[in-house]
Amino acid sequence: DAMAGGEETALLQESLGTLDSSLVKAQDGSFCIVSGEFETSQEAEEMLEKLEKEGLEPGLLHVASGMSDEAPVGNAAGDTSALPEATMPSSIQVYGTVTEINGNQVMLENDNQNDPYSSIVLNINEDTLILTATDCVPKELKDLKVGETLYAYVSPMMTRSLPPISNAELVICQVPEDMAAPTYATITEITSMNDGTPAYVTDRDIIYFIGENTVIKTLDGKKELTAADLTPGTKVLAWYQIMTMSIPAQTTPDEIRVLP
Rank of each mutant, 00 (worst) to 15 (best):
T18R: 13
L61F: 14
G78H: 02
G17H: 13
S22V: 01
A77E: 12
V106Y: 01
D111R: 13
F31N: 11
Q93S: 13
V98H: 00
N112P: 10
N75R: 04
E70N: 06
S15I: 07
A44G: 14
L16E: 05
L48T: 14
V34F: 05
M88P: 01
P84E: 05
G17K: 10
L16I: 07
I101Y: 02
L60E: 13
V63Q: 05
V98Y: 01
Q13D: 06
V73M: 12
E46L: 13
E43W: 06
G36L: 09
D28Q: 10
K53P: 03
A82W: 09
H62R: 08
G17Y: 02
E109Y: 00
I101C: 01
T97C: 04
A76L: 12
K50R: 14
N75Q: 09
L16R: 07
T80Y: 07
Y95L: 04
T80A: 06
S81V: 03
N104C: 00
L51I: 12
Q42E: 15
E70I: 01
S21N: 15
E14M: 09
E14Y: 09
S22D: 10
E49D: 13
S68C: 05
Q105L: 06
G103V: 03
L16W: 08
I101L: 02
L83W: 09
G59C: 12
A77P: 00
L60N: 03
S41A: 12
D28F: 10
Q113L: 15
S90W: 00
E39M: 15
P116K: 02
Q105E: 12
E85R: 07
L108M: 10
N75D: 14
E45L: 13
D69T: 13
S68I: 07
L19I: 11
D20P: 06
S90L: 08
T40N: 03
L51T: 08
P58Q: 14
L12R: 15
V106W: 00
L12C: 11
G96F: 03
S35I: 10
A86C: 15
G55S: 05
Q105R: 08
E57P: 01
E85Y: 00
A86K: 09
L48W: 11
D69A: 11
E14N: 11
S68N: 06
Q27Y: 08
E54C: 06
L12H: 09
S41M: 07
G55M: 03
L83R: 00
E37L: 07
M88V: 15
L51A: 06
N112A: 12
L23I: 13
N110T: 00
G96R: 05
G29W: 01
T40K: 09
S90T: 12
E46M: 10
T18Y: 12
A77C: 15
L56E: 09
S21K: 11
M88W: 07
A71S: 11
M67Y: 06
E49R: 15
P72G: 01
S90H: 03
A82P: 00
S22A: 09
V94P: 02
L83P: 03
G96P: 14
N104F: 00
A86N: 11
D79Q: 05
K25H: 03
E100L: 06
D111L: 02
G103F: 00
P58A: 10
A76C: 01
L60Q: 13
M47W: 04
L60T: 15
N102C: 03
